[in-house]
Simulated scan of single mutants.
Amino acid sequence: MVDFKIILSDPDTGRSYKIDATGPAAGALIGKRIGDEIDGGVFGLAGYTIKITGGTDRTGIPARRDLPGPARRRILLSEGVGFHPVMEGQRRRKSVRGNEISADFVQINAAVKQRGAKPLTEYFEEPKAAAE
C-alpha cells in the first residue's frame, strides 16, 4: 500500500505538523489534485478541513498546480514552482510533476482551511518524559 508524509501547516500560528498517512488515509488522497479540500477526519482531525497545497515525489521533484495529470514531465519554465530564475528573462527546462496525487508521491503539503473544536496542539503534543 501507499504511504505519505503529510506536512500540515497552520497559517494562524505559523507551525507545521507531520502526519504519517498509511492504509485508508493514504488511499483517500490518491486521485486528489492540488487545491482540493479534504476532510481532516480521515487523519483523525475531527472537524478540520485541509487544503492540499503541493507535494514532491521520491526524488524530490515538485508538483505544479497548473500541470494536469500525475506524470512527471520536462517543461520549459521561466518562474514558479520548480525553478527560480537568477537573471531576468532566464528560462530552463526542468522536471516537474503534475497536480494529481499518485502512488509516486512521498510528501504532500497541506494547510488548515477550517478549524475543528480542538486545537492542533492537542493532537500533536509530545508526551512529557517522567521526572526522575
Rank of each mutant, 00 (worst) to 15 (best):
Arg74His: 07
Gly27Ser: 09
Ala28Gln: 12
Pro68Ile: 05
Thr49His: 03
Leu67Asn: 04
Gly44His: 06
Gly41Thr: 07
Ala25Asn: 11
Gly41Glu: 12
Ile38Tyr: 03
Ile34Pro: 07
Arg58Thr: 14
Arg73Trp: 04
Gly41Leu: 12
Ala71Leu: 13
Thr49Ser: 11
Gly55Asn: 10
Ser78Tyr: 03
Asp66Leu: 01
Val42Trp: 06
Ile75Arg: 10
Pro62Ser: 11
Gly55Lys: 00
Val42Phe: 07
Asp66Gly: 01
Tyr48Asp: 01
Ala26Thr: 10
Ala28Asp: 12
Ile30Asn: 12
Ile34Phe: 05
Arg73Asn: 08
Leu76Glu: 09
Pro24Thr: 14
Gly69Asp: 00
Gly35Gln: 09
Ala46Tyr: 10
Asp66Gln: 01
Gly44Arg: 03
Asp39Thr: 11
Ala21Tyr: 06
Gly69Lys: 01
Phe43Pro: 05
Arg72Val: 13
Thr49Ala: 08
Leu67Lys: 14
Gly55Phe: 01
Ile75Val: 15
Ile19Ser: 07
Thr59His: 07
Leu67Thr: 13
Gly60Leu: 14
Leu76Lys: 13
Ile19Thr: 07
Ala26Leu: 11
Ile75Glu: 11
Val42Asn: 09
Ala71Phe: 07
Ile75Leu: 14
Pro68Ser: 03
Asp39Arg: 10
Arg58His: 10
Thr22Glu: 14
Gly69Leu: 02
Gly40Cys: 10
Gly35Ser: 12
Pro70Cys: 06
Asp66Pro: 00
Leu77Trp: 01
Ile19Asn: 01
Thr49Asn: 06
Gly27Gln: 13
Arg73Ser: 13
Thr59Pro: 02
Thr49Trp: 02
Ala71Pro: 00
Gly35Leu: 08
Gly60Glu: 08
Asp66Tyr: 00
Arg65Pro: 03
Glu37Phe: 03
Ile52Leu: 14
Gly54Ile: 08
Pro70Thr: 12
Ser78Cys: 03
Pro70Asp: 15
Ala21Val: 10
Arg73Ile: 07
Ala21Thr: 05
Thr22Pro: 04
Gly40Met: 08
Ala25Gln: 12
Lys51His: 00
Ala28Gly: 15
Leu45Ala: 05
Ile75Ala: 02
Thr49Phe: 00
Asp66Ile: 04
Ile52Gly: 06
Asp57Asn: 14
Arg33Pro: 02
Glu37Ser: 13
Ala25Phe: 05
Lys51Gln: 15
Arg72Leu: 13
Gly69Cys: 01
Ile50Ser: 01
Pro62Cys: 10
Phe43Cys: 03
Ile75Met: 08
Thr49Arg: 15
Ile52His: 00
Asp57Ile: 06
Val42Asp: 05
Lys51Glu: 15
Leu77Met: 13
Asp57Lys: 00
Gly47Phe: 02
Gly47Gln: 04
Pro68Asp: 04
Gly41Cys: 11
Thr56Tyr: 04
Ala71Cys: 09
Tyr48Ile: 15
Ala63Phe: 06
Asp39Tyr: 04
